[in-house]
């Protein structure tokens, strides 16, 4: 009988652990609607406002994360974010994935190579225009 009780307790513990793990994923019921955002987040993400509700929740969460990093960025970086935000949001998931992949690969290059990259981009642009 003792053993049976111990067995039940352990089984209960196991089930509780499982429920806990499953619950961890569902603990964020936030839907990241525009109204839910803070005033600062809304200000940063203003370029996306018109299309916000059409974005999938994980994209919205991604943008909220970027909005939270925004105050810590240099001014020139903030300007770039504002300028690129809409374009980035309107790309297809495949295009974004490709850009991330290219970034990862190029970010691995040495600092020297990364510095040259800017010049190379200008060269490439000039060649293409010709």
């Amino acid at each position: 009988m003792n053993r049976r009780a111990a067995c039940r307790a352990l089984l209960g513990l196991g089930l509780w652990a499982m429920a806990g793990a499953a619950g961890a994923q569902k603990r964020q019921p936030r839907r990241y609607t525009w109204a839910e955002l803070t005033a600062t987040q809304q200000e940063v993400l203003a370029p996306l406002k018109s299309d916000w509700e059409n974005l999938p929740i994980e994209r919205r969460r991604n943008w909220v994360g970027i909005a939270n990093r925004y105050p810590k960025m240099a001014q020139v970086e903030q300007e770039r974010v504002q300028k690129r935000m809409q374009r980035w949001a309107n790309l297809s998931p495949e295009q974004r994935a490709r850009a991330r992949e290219n970034y990862r690969r190029m970010a691995k290059a040495s600092a020297e190579k990364r510095r040259r990259l800017r010049q190379q981009w200008a060269e490439y642009q000039a060649q293409k225009a010709r």
């Binding site: 994980e58 969460r61 991604n62 994360g65 970027i66 990093r69 960025m73 970086e77 770039r80 974010v81 690129r84 935000m85 374009r87 980035w88 790309l91 295009q95 974004r96 490709r98 850009a99 991330r100 290219n102 970034y103 990862r104 190029m106 970010a107 990259l117 800017r118 981009w121 490439y124 293409k128």
Partner: peptide, 25 residues
């Protein structure tokens, strides 16, 4: 998700424009 957010933030603030990473050419 955290990694994607990190890279997106870097891409949006990078010296090079988005096109440099999108342009296959």
């Amino acid at each position: 998700l955290a990694e994607i957010e990190e890279i997106d933030a870097l891409l949006l603030t990078d010296e090079l424009p988005l096109d440099a990473y999108l342009d296959r050419g």
